[in-house]
């Protein structure tokens, strides 16, 4: 595993913000860490990067215990925090050289790598510009560039696409894909479900400090229900809805319009014929019966709502 945590707890005062968090990030994966505001995503990232210490539990990065080998871990880790904390009066290159030296590179090596990385993230022409004049997107790209100094094995990003326009998001996505293609494991937190769906191979869903789901993108989509059946019935009644809800493969139903019902199902077989038969036997007149697969957004809301 690239990153694994065991029974992690974090307290602020008397309040637990993380409880029994045990997550696993496979090497070479892009792990999306999803959660609502205040779920504990940033706290988790701070713990993984050594900016914070847990109340209880263990953190392993590339097989090393963070509590005893933080120095070695910091050399293989690249962090992109949520808020850009660059010095406005310094240039991009000056930042990179400084951070490169902190990561153990000589001044010459740091300068060479900095130029290459700044080119890679599209800041090659801005390297002598003061960061105070950078846009939000440029600062994010600089953040990624500094995290890539000295070839880290793992990249941790806290909401990297926050506040970016679609062009900026696409650029970041492209950079992250390139990094992953080079073998870097990526751990990123995000609110943007579509973004996670586009780029991540694995997802963990955090709700109120607890990890409620963790799997591949595909499996997460089928977490609680693996499909949605939309049925249109001219004389839809509450008795018919109750009959449908009692079927064992039905997770829940949602009335979308007077005659339109959405049925969330969890079944490996085609259940449309059984639903159709049930409605017809109840005297219903079916005019529509289609099946859609669940999006990550639906799965996320399912997961967090069900666990509340």
């Amino acid at each position: 595993m690239a990153i694994s945590t065991k029974n992690l707890y974090k307290k602020y005062g008397s309040r637990f913000v993380l409880e029994n968090l045990s997550l696993n990030v496979e090497k070479g994966s892009i792990y999306g860490f999803l959660g609502q505001n205040g779920a504990g995503k940033t706290t988790t990232i701070k713990l993984l990067s050594g900016l914070s210490t847990p109340a209880q539990g263990q953190i392993f990065v590339d097989g090393m215990d963070l509590s005893s080998e933080s120095g070695k871990i910091k050399q293989i880790l690249g962090l992109v925090p949520q808020d850009s904390g660059f010095y406005d009066e310094r240039t991009a290159l000056s930042h990179m050289v400084y951070y490169g030296r902190l990561k153990g590179l000589s001044k010459k090596e740091s300068l060479e790598q900095s130029r290459v990385l700044l080119d890679q993230v599209g800041l090659g022409n801005e390297m002598f510009k003061r960061v105070g004049y950078f846009s939000h997107g440029m600062k994010t790209r600089l953040g990624i560039a500094q995290a890539l100094l000295n070839d880290p094995k793992i990249l941790i990003l806290d909401e990297p696409t926050n506040g970016l326009d679609p062009v900026g998001i696409r650029q970041i996505r492209q950079i992250l894909r390139e990094c992953n293609n080079e073998g870097i494991t990526i751990f990123l937190s995000s609110h943007n479900l579509l973004e996670i769906q586009e780029i991540c191979t694995h997802v963990g869903i955090l709700n109120k400090g607890k990890l409620i789901a963790e799997s591949t993108i595909e499996k997460i989509r089928h977490l609680e229900s693996n499909g949605v059946i939309t049925i249109g019935v001219y004389n839809l009644s509450s008795e018919m809805i109750s009959l449908i809800e009692n079927l064992k493969f039905v997770v829940k139903t949602e009335l979308k319009a007077e005659h339109i019902l959405e049925i969330f199902v969890n079944s490996r077989t085609d259940v449309k014929p059984e639903i159709n038969r049930l409605i017809v036997e109840s005297g219903g007149q079916v005019f529509k019966l289609i099946e859609n697969s669940l999006s990550l957004e639906d799965a996320f809301f399912d997961a967090t709502r069900i666990k509340l």
Partner: peptide
């Protein structure tokens, strides 16, 4: 000042 601006995170994530 480093704590206030957040620049400390870039440093502490790299050094002791």
């Amino acid at each position: 000042s480093e704590i206030e601006t957040g620049s400390v995170r870039y440093i502490i994530s790299k050094v002791h």
